[in-house]
Design a protein around this nucleic acid. Structure first.
Lengths: 224, 224
DNA sequence: AGGGCGGTGGTACCCCGGTACTACGGTGGC
DNA sequence: GCCACCGTAGTACCGGGGTACCACCGCCCT
């Protein structure tokens, strides 16, 4: 038995999906969510095998919800439904960790088999989207065209940082721990934490690892 | 009406495909080829809509044949059939310009709908392969500046690592958390931890931050 | 005199990362 | 046939990292 959560802001759409899914012996609809945060909450609560996720929803959208659901490490798989054939968000969904995406005007059988594939750990992509996906894939693989490397010492992402914060980010980029930073810069560890916390917030990094990467990417720290 | 050429070195296999295809009103088998060069010659002669291409064939293999067929600029699409679920040649086939690949143990309906999708210009990938494809895709995406594939960031500190460990280190270098690595590479988090632990031990890194820095310094990961 | 901002510091809490084990199937070498 | 190695997976534990919130000081600006 495969359990499914439906996340879509349109009630009528949800109804249609529910009817279709309930007509199958091996599928059960655990519930319906009208936006991303509901989907997130209900997923944490109900642990469905598959979340049928619409992208465009008020509040938290389907991409962010997907990212967070995947981040939980749960077995729950996310199958994204896009309205349009070409939906650039579909790629974002992919990067967010979705196990597949289908277009809403797909045949019912496609949707059902897609759900079953995803539930069993496979991934699915709508044929009409697969083409673009493959194109993007082969482009990115051997894409020798190195593009401009524009060093950008003053990267936009760093502009919000104060002088002190940039100093801290530099040593974070060198791999120093909070304790080491505190000792070598004669600060309290709590101060270091405050600084690092603000750096993460301002640069949109989720942890110091991302900050290290940012430091390298912006050439604030050079490879040795 | 969709015309198909079957390229496979096993007669029995060809027979099965032919029977299946001939049972459909909208599909016609134009001929059968037993190896890559035959497939190439017959394609130039018969101009089928789709070539059902096996990879492993004596003489010219399916990859090379695909490459040459695509190079002609004809409308002919190539649908690759792989025997094994994980067939690294599948990726090569993709890069060679194939419009899709399916595993041979797929359901007949899958094969038929795959042929029709390919004939109409879409692309198809077997669900069991899509998973790996997506993994490769998301891995290669952020790589952006794709450089020529000079492998082997020849650093002494990396020499002790196994191939798998180098893979893991690469994604660690991209800032993925253990949970994300587990999810996107289909591993248990404990496995990821084991790998990361061994990487840290072998490279003499005290934590993953040092490993990220190492990945950058050795150019295992390039700034984006 | 007041207010904003940057730098410093503190407390409390939770989760992820890292360590230390053990274990088991597959593969390749001897 | 056996053994080493690799990749996978599990449990248990602890410490550091990150967050939320608050607080004080010194500076500059109006």
């Amino acid at each position: 038995m495969t359990t499914v959560l439906i996340a879509d802001d349109q009630p009528l759409q949800r109804f249609g999906f529910r009817m279709l899914l309930e007509s199958q012996d091996d599928l059960t609809v655990l519930g319906e969510a009208a936006n991303g945060s509901e989907a997130l909450r209900m997923t944490a609560e109900l642990h469905p095998d598959v979340v049928l996720m619409d992208i465009r929803m008020p509040g938290m959208d389907g991409i962010e919800a997907t990212r967070r659901i995947v981040a939980t490490g749960d077995r729950t798989r996310v199958l994204i439904l896009t309205t349009f054939d070409l939906d650039e968000y579909a790629y974002a969904g992919l990067r967010a960790g979705a196990s597949g995406f289908l277009v809403k005007d797909a045949q019912p059988e496609e949707l059902l088999s897609g759900i079953r594939s995803v539930a069993s750990g496979d991934a699915v992509v709508a044929p009409s989207l697969t083409r673009r996906l493959l194109d993007a894939y082969v482009q990115h693989l051997p894409a020798g065209g190195g593009t401009a490397d524009v060093p950008l010492p003053g990267d936009a992402r760093l502009s919000a940082l104060t002088e002190r914060e940039r100093e801290i980010l530099t040593v974070v980029g060198k791999g120093w721990t909070n304790t080491e930073i505190a000792a070598r810069l004669h600060l309290a560890e709590s101060t270091v934490k405050t600084h690092v916390g603000r750096i993460l917030a301002k640069t949109g990094s989720r942890d110091r690892i991302q900050a290290v990467i940012l430091a390298y990417d912006t050439k604030l720290v050079e490879p040795s």
